[in-house]
């Protein structure tokens, strides 16, 4: 899978609950009945996921808009 999300900027995050660094892994995301997997940083223990600001306001917002048929 290509680096469509730049995770390197976020490598200093760790799960505060489990006290372990976040690792890259597949995460299901969905909107309006469409779902797909992306690679995101998450806690290997409790699965807490990190959605970086760039992604939320960039590609995610664009997908939301496309699927909403604006």
């Amino acid at each position: 899978m290509s680096d469509y999300v730049d995770l390197s900027k976020e490598k200093n995050w760790m799960c505060a609950n489990c006290n372990v660094p976040l690792v890259s892994g597949k995460v299901d995301i969905s909107y309006l009945g469409n779902s797909f997997q992306v690679n995101l940083l998450k806690c290997p223990i409790c699965n807490l996921v990190l959605v970086p600001e760039d992604l939320a306001l960039g590609k995610m917002a664009e997908v939301e808009k496309s699927l909403e048929d604006k």
């Binding site: 899978m1 997997q37 590609k59 997908v63 496309s66």
Partner: peptide, 25 residues
């Protein structure tokens, strides 16, 4: 809609966000 694109994006290195946006358009 129910078809999982995951294997496709995995095997083709298509950015899933990009795919969804284009497919929706």
């Amino acid at each position: 809609r129910q078809f999982s694109l995951d294997k496709l994006t995995e095997s083709s290195s298509i950015d899933p966000f990009d795919l969804i946006i284009r497919a929706a358009k």
